[in-house]
Amino acid sequence: MADIVNLRHARKQKARLEKERDASQNRALHGRSKAEKERDRLAADNSERFVAGHRREPFGDKDSQSIGPKSAQRFSDESDG
């Protein structure tokens, strides 16, 4: 004789297994300790500071960001006054 299976219980068990599988994947992808997050943040800050220190023009200077004919000052006959 075959075993009688309650489909409601089987369906719930399957959902629990899928939920646990998804949770384990998320733990592997996103589960980092506070120290690891802090280490990565410090490394990113140090690299950004290094790059910013080696720029030719200051980062916030609007006039020196673009060089070319479009950034040149326009003069008109009326302004010569």
Score class of each variant (00 low, 15 high):
Met1Lys: 09
Met1Trp: 06
Ala2Leu: 12
Ile4Asn: 01
Val5Thr: 01
Asn6Val: 06
Leu7Met: 12
Arg8Gly: 13
Arg8Phe: 09
His9Phe: 14
His9Ile: 07
Arg11Val: 04
Arg11Met: 10
Lys12Ile: 04
Lys12Asn: 08
Gln13Val: 06
Gln13Asp: 10
Lys14Glu: 13
Lys14Gln: 06
Lys14Asn: 09
Ala15Trp: 06
Ala15Ser: 08
Ala15Lys: 13
Ala15Thr: 00
Arg16Gly: 00
Arg16Pro: 05
Glu18Ser: 09
Glu18Gly: 07
Lys19Arg: 14
Glu20Asp: 08
Arg21Leu: 08
Asp22Ser: 15
Asp22Lys: 14
Ala23Met: 06
Ser24Val: 11
Gln25Gly: 05
Gln25Lys: 14
Asn26Ser: 09
Arg27Cys: 04
Ala28Trp: 08
Leu29Tyr: 04
His30Arg: 14
His30Phe: 14
Arg32Thr: 08
Arg32Phe: 05
Arg32Asp: 09
Ser33Pro: 01
Ser33Asn: 00
Lys34Ala: 15
Ala35Ser: 11
Glu36Thr: 03
Lys37Cys: 11
Lys37Asn: 13
Lys37His: 03
Glu38Ala: 07
Glu38Asp: 10
Arg39Gln: 10
Asp40Tyr: 02
Arg41Gly: 07
Arg41Pro: 03
Leu42Tyr: 02
Leu42Gln: 12
Ala43Glu: 04
Ala44Pro: 02
Ala44Asn: 01
Asp45Lys: 14
Ser47Pro: 00
Glu48Ala: 15
Arg49Glu: 15
Arg49Trp: 13
Phe50Ala: 12
Phe50Val: 13
Val51Ala: 02
Val51Leu: 05
Gly53Ala: 14
Gly53Leu: 09
Gly53Val: 04
Gly53His: 00
His54Trp: 10
His54Val: 15
Arg55Glu: 05
Arg56Thr: 11
Arg56Asn: 10
Arg56Phe: 09
Pro58Trp: 05
Phe59Ile: 10
Phe59Ala: 15
Gly60Arg: 05
Asp61Trp: 01
Asp61Cys: 00
Asp61Ile: 01
Asp63Val: 01
Gln65Pro: 00
Gln65Ala: 04
Gln65Leu: 05
Ser66Asp: 05
Ser66Gln: 04
Ser66Lys: 06
Ser66Ile: 02
Ile67Val: 03
Ile67Leu: 04
Ile67Thr: 08
Ile67His: 00
Pro69Tyr: 09
Pro69Ala: 14
Pro69His: 03
Pro69Cys: 06
Lys70Thr: 07
Lys70Gln: 11
Ser71Leu: 00
Gln73Ala: 15
Gln73Gly: 08
Arg74Lys: 09
Phe75Trp: 02
Ser76Ala: 10
Ser76Val: 08
Asp77Asn: 13
Asp77Gln: 14
Glu78Thr: 01
Glu78Ala: 08
Glu78Met: 03
Glu78Pro: 05
Asp80Gln: 15
Asp80Trp: 11
Gly81Glu: 15
Gly81Ala: 15
